[in-house]
């Protein structure tokens, strides 16, 4: 039924793993990785990419502006 699909790109090396995006996501797409980046932070990533609706809530609350958001209307493609 998903008419829109979204995806995020996290600038892994700039992410500080604060986790604010995780709670801001209405679709539970994001989680913090078990791996760490160069600064030792568990960075954010799309754990559940299929659920992303490209709402950009994660990027809006991100204090370090490390999330870029993309969105397509899948219905229009049908």
């Amino acid at each position: 039924m998903a008419k829109v699909r979204g995806a995020i790109v996290v600038d892994v090396e700039k992410c500080k793993g604060c986790g604010l995006c995780v709670v801001a996501c209405p679709s539970k797409v994001i989680d913090l990785a078990k791996e760490v980046n160069g600064k030792g932070y568990n960075y954010a990533y799309m754990a559940n990419p299929d659920a992303c609706i490209g709402c950009a809530n994660c990027a809006i609350v991100c204090p370090d502006t490390v999330i870029t958001v993309y969105k397509v209307n899948t219905e229009a493609n049908v």
């Binding site: 500080k16 950009a56 958001v69």
Partner: peptide, 26 residues
Amino acid sequence: DIIKEENLVYGKTKLLTDNIMHYCPG
């Protein structure tokens, strides 16, 4: 297929520099 320039809905404004902020996480 989603991550394409034409599908961009939110990105960093160019007025923010590329410096990593010294602020604590969150």
